[in-house]
């Protein structure tokens, strides 16, 4: 990271290769469509290049800092664009997801589709909290720092999200 601070492009490339997957996956789980995910991911790494000197290794890990940038960009994006658009995109891409192309059972596909719908219907903070802790593997403390909320608020968001998913899947199935 120090090398990126002094303008090393090769160091930047190494960082991109190391963090691209987790950042793009997090963005996708928040935005729900591939095009915007790619735009946001690109923007995250551009910001990494521009603001490298602002990162404080004593305050946070690099991955936490990058997820925070991604989180802020995604939230800004979601606030600027209509929610309906995101939800539609989730549904469109669900049809092309690997789960649907596999020879898995119809029941599994239905459940996956239901879950996608339920996830896209969650408020951003709940979706983000769930994604950070469940999929991205962050601790509650780290996830709270990324979202800039307290640990209690994060736990509350996760609990509400899980309850909501459970209710929706139970009702629909």
């Amino acid at each position: 990271m120090q090398a990126v601070c002094v303008g090393s492009r090769s160091a930047y490339q190494r960082l991109v290769k190391r963090h691209l997957k987790s950042i793009s996956h997090y963005a996708y789980r928040l935005l729900g469509n591939q095009k915007d995910t790619q735009d946001i991911t690109q923007e995250v790494f551009l910001r990494l290049w521009i603001n490298a000197q602002k990162w404080d290794s004593e305050k946070s890990k690099l991955t936490t800092w990058l997820h925070r940038i991604a989180h802020n960009l995604c939230i800004d994006y979601l606030r600027k664009h209509t929610r309906i658009q995101t939800q539609d995109s989730f549904d469109d891409e669900a049809a092309h997801s690997p789960a649907n192309n596999d020879e898995s059972t119809e029941e599994t596909n239905d459940k996956t589709k239901l879950l996608r719908e339920a996830l896209s219907a969650l408020p951003e903070n709940q979706r983000s909290a769930l994604s950070l802790c469940h999929y991205q593997g962050f601790s509650n403390k780290e996830a709270a720092a990324i979202m800039n909320i307290s640990v209690k608020a994060l736990e509350s968001a996760i609990a509400r999200a899980k309850r909501s998913l459970r209710e929706k899947l139970t009702i629909n199935s």
Binding site: V16, K17, L20, S24, H25, Y28, R29, Q34, T37, Q38, T41, Q42, F45, E93, H96, S97, P98, A99, T108, K111, T112, L114, L115, R116, L119, H134, K162, L165, R166, L169, T170, S173
Partner: peptide, 24 residues
């Protein structure tokens, strides 16, 4: 019920982004 939700969540995959690394 919660076990079923967790099972479904584990199966939820993110699509691959083939050209993204090159693009970035």
């Amino acid at each position: 019920q919660q076990w079923q939700v967790e099972e479904s969540m584990a199966k939820l995959e993110v699509p691959s982004f083939p050209g993204l690394e090159t693009r970035v």
